[in-house]
């Protein structure tokens, strides 16, 4: 069974919070298109108000990054992105311009994460990540979903 961790960047307090179960299920169902044996988990990256912009203006657009196998055909990738996009709009009621899907090859997602972590001081990041991990576990226990804030306050 192949494991995929989907990152969904969403706005704090947005509709997703009431519909996360349906959204997670919809993403898992869509994975049937790319890999019927997929084991899928969704991590919600919460963006506080005033920290996201589109076209230079404040934005509430959500971005979903579902990793896909490296040997996937473009036709299948597009079907998959369409499925995620459609389900997201139906469940949240957002417009087509408020959802971005970036189905990156899984090796590229790993590379992106590597670059993203490379900007941080390893020694200082350790304690912050530990705190983030504990907070994420608490949230999972209290609310049922795994999430973290885009800010890393100590």
């Amino acid at each position: 069974m192949n494991k995929y961790r989907v990152i969904a960047s969403v706005h704090e307090g947005g509709v997703w919070e009431q519909r996360f179960k349906a959204l997670e299920q919809a993403i898992k169902n869509a994975y049937g298109i790319v890999d019927p044996n997929a084991s899928v988990s969704v991590v919600w990256q919460r963006i506080p108000a005033g920290q996201a912009y589109l076209a230079g203006e404040p934005s509430t657009t959500s971005t979903v990054v579902p990793p896909v196998p490296v040997d996937i055909k473009q036709e299948i990738r597009e079907q998959f992105m369409h499925a995620v996009c459609q389900e997201w709009m139906e469940i949240t009621g957002c417009s087509v311009n408020e959802i971005i899907v970036n189905a990156m090859n899984e090796d590229m997602v790993a590379k992106y994460m590597q670059i993203s972590q490379g900007r941080l001081s390893k020694s200082k990041a350790k304690s912050r990540f530990a705190l983030m991990f504990i907070t994420a576990l608490l949230k999972k226990w209290l609310r049922g979903y795994t999430s973290f804030n885009i800010n890393l306050k100590s």
Partner: peptide, 14 residues
């Protein structure tokens, strides 16, 4: 409309 900018704060940067 393609350009997205997101801010991530209080990060322990290098």
């Amino acid at each position: 409309t393609f350009v997205q900018v997101v801010f991530s704060e209080h990060l322990p940067l290098q």
